[in-house]
C-alpha cells in the first residue's frame, strides 16, 4: 500500500497521523496485506461466509422501557466537557 492509500484509509478511520507515522505504518500495513495475499489461493466459490458462528438466528426483546435513575448522570459525569445537561464539543460547522 502506498502512502496516498494509507492517507485515505487514515482519514476514514479518523486518525491524524504524522508524516513519520504514515511512512512507518504504510510499511507495516503493506507487510500484513502481503501476508494476507495467500488467501487468494483458496477456491471460495462454494463457500458461504461464516459471519455468525453458532447463534444463527436473532431473538427479540420485549418492548418495555426501564430507565435506571442514576445512570444518565453517571454517563454525563464521564463526559470530558459539558454544560448543564449537554455534552459540549468544538463547533461541527
Amino acid at each position: 500500500m502506498d502512502v496516498m492509500d494509507l492517507k485515505i484509509t487514515a482519514e476514514l478511520a479518523k486518525l491524524a497521523l504524522t508524516e513519520e507515522e504514515t511512512a512507518k505504518l504504510s510499511e507495516e500495513v503493506a507487510r500484513m496485506l502481503e501476508y494476507f495475499s495467500s488467501m487468494s489461493e483458496v477456491d471460495v466459490t462454494h463457500l458461504e461466509p461464516t459471519n455468525y458462528v453458532l447463534q444463527k438466528e436473532n431473538r427479540t426483546r420485549i418492548d418495555s422501557e426501564k430507565n435506571e435513575s442514576d445512570i444518565p448522570d453517571k454517563i454525563l459525569g464521564n463526559a470530558p466537557r459539558r454544560e448543564d445537561r449537554f455534552i459540549v464539543i468544538p463547533n461541527v460547522l
Binding site: 500500500m1 492509500d5 494509507l6 485515505i8 484509509t9 487514515a10 476514514l12 478511520a13 486518525l15 505504518l25 500495513v29 500484513m32 496485506l33 494476507f36 488467501m39 487468494s40 483458496v42 471460495v44 463457500l47 458461504e48 461466509p49 461464516t50 459471519n51
Partner: peptide, 26 residues
C-alpha cells in the same frame, strides 16, 4: 485499525474481508 479499515474499503472487501469469512467456513 488501519488494516481493518483497509480490508473493508469498497473495492477491497471481496479480496479480503468476504474472502476471509469464506475461508473461515473451510
Amino acid at each position: 485499525i488501519l488494516l481493518g479499515t483497509y480490508v473493508l474499503r469498497s473495492g477491497f472487501q471481496d479480496q479480503y474481508y468476504h474472502r476471509a469469512q469464506k475461508i473461515r467456513t473451510a
